[in-house]
Amino acid sequence: MKKIQDFKLKTYQWLNDENYIFTLQSEEDIEAVEAGMFAEIEVPNASDVFLRRPISVLDVDYDNKSLSFYIKAIGKGTRKLGTLQEGDPISLIYPLGNTFTIGNIRSALIVGGGSGIAPFVMLGRELKEKGIKTTFLLGARSKEDIFLTDEFAKYGEVCVTTEDGSLGEKGLVTQHSLFSDGSQFDKIYTCGPDPMMKAVARIAKERSIACEASLENMMACGFGACLCCVTPTSDGRNLCVCTEGPVFNTQELAWSI
């Protein structure tokens, strides 16, 4: 059930000067969180930040009553969230949104770009537990922007593309050789910048592979009250990304791919 819950900042793990993982701990039990869900995180002590920030859950630890989030500090809200002190109170509204669906598949490709890798730790773990062969394909501008590869390696093969060629294959994710070497996947999951997700969805469509994308639209509330975060569907409806998503079958979206 959705709820407002008080947490305290437990730890930061800085990946570089603008990417961090923070772990929040509560005195209460953690609600059930599944891969793809997000929380609306209060930005404490920030007079210039008005709204909460919707952030995908990176991982959950029910025993320690903690949730962790991977955050790229690109705006004033996400930068401010990186300046808390250990023990600072922080309020979450969670769990929000839907989840990835797995179904009857034997192999999966996960394509993540930028902070879009966050939901794939939990998804990768779930796929491994179900015995599904999983390949991770991470794309970024440069090797300094590729994170969590050790974590993903626990659940499957990890492939990388960088635009400058500093790590893995040079180019965009859609130019990676796994798309041309005869690799077969029953399903593709993607999260990241819109152009990347659309390019991935286009490949999936051409090859008749099921594809789910997790969208990152701007939100005010996160639970279906404000109707600000909509995405249009191929049949002309506007769906709330927060409640009908954030995960969508890419065929349903008006992406003209």
Partner: peptide
Amino acid sequence: REGNPYPRMAETPSGMLNAVGLQ
């Protein structure tokens, strides 16, 4: 009514703008 196209919201100092358009 499907309302206006996204983006429909902008955070502003101590407030927000919306342009949902009566969806």
